[in-house]
């Protein structure tokens, strides 16, 4: 597996995809900060920038906007996995990898590691811009150090977990369809559709009087229950478990699909 990883890292250094997407992540994060800073001038009133960007007033239990599955970090992760890892499928170079006596498990794990690595890179890039910008603007002043650090780390952690889910989904679609275009479209469209559907389900269920505790388990709709200022510990736990299981489940399923795939 180390040789496959070595090759992937060599290609990564030569590839523009990662750097372009990282640059876009940084640019969009700066745009976020800029727009929020301008909000009081435009709308007459603003919001707590730290709360909006890193999520929540109560940093002890924070659900970050980074963890929303329609976050652009997660979107860029989809593009990266589909375009970079997908090259081996579209160019046929997967044949060379298979012929070098590497098992399909080793190859799949190498793809997974690179995908997970890029999740961390994108989320850190986005978070770094937020944190540095907010610190420079003195926005952390109203929070204690513990609150600020807890918020930052939980925000990054949830963001990375959310990106893992998208990366695993993209890899699953890629090994299943062997088509890069589908590996971009299906995860993004599927996530948006599922998020909308589940949010509607939650709204209807709430009207019907269903217990909130049970509804907090529904993926893609969990952020609806975030309550700024309240103790969201239980919700955070559910988010971690659901997203963790989703990422792990898709990761394992992806391997079995890849192991059986008939390749050209």
């Amino acid at each position: 597996m180390s040789k496959v990883l070595n090759t992937l890292l060599f290609r990564l250094k030569k590839s523009k995809i990662l750097w372009v997407l990282l640059a876009l992540t940084v640019a969009m994060a700066l745009l976020d900060v800029g727009l929020l800073k301008l909000l009081p001038l435009i709308a007459g009133s603003g919001s707590d920038m730290v709360a909006t960007l890193l999520g929540g007033d109560a940093f002890a239990t924070t659900f970050s906007t980074l963890a929303r599955t329609d976050s652009y970090s997660a979107m860029f992760v989809v593009f990266f996995v589909a375009l970079f890892v997908g090259t081996d499928f579209s160019e046929g170079t997967l044949r060379n990898v298979l012929l070098s006596n590497k098992s399909r498990l080793q190859i799949y794990l190498a793809y997974l590691i690179v995908s997970v690595g890029c999740c961390i890179a994108f989320v850190f890039a986005q978070a770094a811009v937020y944190v540095v910008a907010l610190a420079l603007m003195g926005e952390f002043a109203k929070y204690t150090l513990v609150q600020a650090l807890t918020g930052i780390f939980s925000s990054i952690g949830l963001g990375v977990l959310s990106c893992f889910v998208m990366a695993a989904t993209t890899l699953l679609v890629l090994v299943g369809t062997k088509k890069r275009v589908l590996a971009v479209i299906l995860p993004l469209a599927g996530t948006m559709v599922l998020a909308t559907v589940f949010e509607v389900v939650v709204l209807v269920a709430q009207v019907q009087g269903m217990a909130v505790g049970a509804l907090q388990w529904i993926p893609f709709a969990q952020q609806m229950f975030f309550n700024a200022g309240a103790n969201n510990g239980a919700l955070l736990g559910k988010i971690l478990l659901v997203n963790g299981l989703l990422a792990a489940g898709e990761g394992v399923l992806g391997y079995f699909v890849f192991a059986k795939a008939q390749l050209k």
Partner: peptide
């Protein structure tokens, strides 16, 4: 074992030398 099945399997974004270097790392 090496093979060339149907179309050539190459990394289009790399030069000839870099394709060989990538393959060398794999092997």
């Amino acid at each position: 074992v090496a093979a060339l099945i149907e179309a050539p399997s190459l990394y289009g974004g790399l030069s000839a030398m870099d394709n060989l270097r990538a393959q060398a790392r794999l092997l």
